[in-house]
């Protein structure tokens, strides 16, 4: 087919968390510009399997930009060269024939490599387990329309809630800081009336867990915001900082255990 491309891939290969890895070069031939980036890797993997080589391992699932499972640091940028999309939404028409593409995993102490390009992002889960919720049980809640939420607040909370937890912010940050992710989660609840009862405690628990996971600190470079596939803004970080300092320095109540105690 005309217009198809031949590419050189430099890919990080690492057997497992304990092994050391290295960059390995592969050819990707006859690649259609209509393929997605992951479909290009599928094609390479098919040829590797037939050659009895181990296919390149990478995380992926929904392939429509919402599950947050795909990652890949492509040519020095998380999710590749285009703004506001994930790797699975990146299409090969963004590259040109003969190009060399470097593909690496997210790099962060808090995201250890599992294999090749896949990393362990369970730190994100643990941060949310520490307090990223409204403590309500199923049932016994008021009618949904009893709570009036101004559209601007609902929209703003939604903007924070669009975070897909992919970790591109950590990958992009020179300090491997998770502040954009954590602040998006904190912001959503801090903005909504439902989140108010636990607002001051939640932010402290989540930040404490974030620190424990070994992420770096925020130096306000804005690289995270620029690379976020869902365009989460730095305003979230500022909002979280404000809440955190208010909670730590001016609120008298103690942090409560967010699970709400025993059964």
């Amino acid at each position: 087919m005309s217009g198809n491309m031949n590419l050189t891939l430099k890919v990080w290969r690492q057997k497992d968390a304990k092994s050391t890895g290295k960059m390995v070069t592969y050819k990707a031939e006859n690649i259609s510009p209509d393929m997605s980036f992951l479909e290009m890797l599928d094609v390479v993997n098919e040829s590797l399997i037939l050659k009895n080589d181990e296919p390149i391992h990478f995380d992926h699932d929904c392939r429509e930009g919402i599950c947050g499972m795909c990652s890949l640091y492509i040519n020095g940028r998380p999710h590749g060269p285009k703004r506001a999309i994930t790797t699975c939404q990146l299409h090969m028409r963004s590259f040109h024939d003969g190009e060399t593409i470097t593909i690496e995993p997210w790099r962060a102490a808090a995201f250890p490599v599992i294999k090749d390009l896949a990393v362990d992002r369970s730190a994100f889960d643990r941060i949310q387990q520490a307090g990223g919720y409204v403590s309500v049980n199923t049932g016994g809640v008021p009618d949904a329309n009893e709570l009036l939420i101004p559209k601007v607040i609902a929209d703003e909370a939604f903007n924070s809630a669009t975070c897909i937890g992919c970790g591109a912010c950590v990958a992009a940050c020179k300090n491997a800081s998770a502040m954009l992710f954590v602040s998006a989660k904190v912001s959503q609840m801090a903005l909504l009336p439902q989140g108010q009862p636990e607002r001051w405690s939640r932010v402290q628990s989540m930040v404490a867990q974030m620190d424990e996971e070994g992420f770096g600190s925020c130096t306000n470079t804005g690289a995270c915001e620029a690379e976020c596939p869902k365009e989460i803004t730095l305003t979230n970080i500022s909002r979280m900082n404000n809440d955190y300092f208010s909670a730590k320095l001016f609120r008298e109540e103690k942090v409560h255990d967010h699970s709400g105690g025993g059964e």
Binding site: Y133, V134, V136, V141, P142, A157, L192
Partner: peptide
């Protein structure tokens, strides 16, 4: 239920 959980 979803609204109570903070679904926007």
């Amino acid at each position: 239920q979803c609204v109570a959980q903070g679904v926007p």
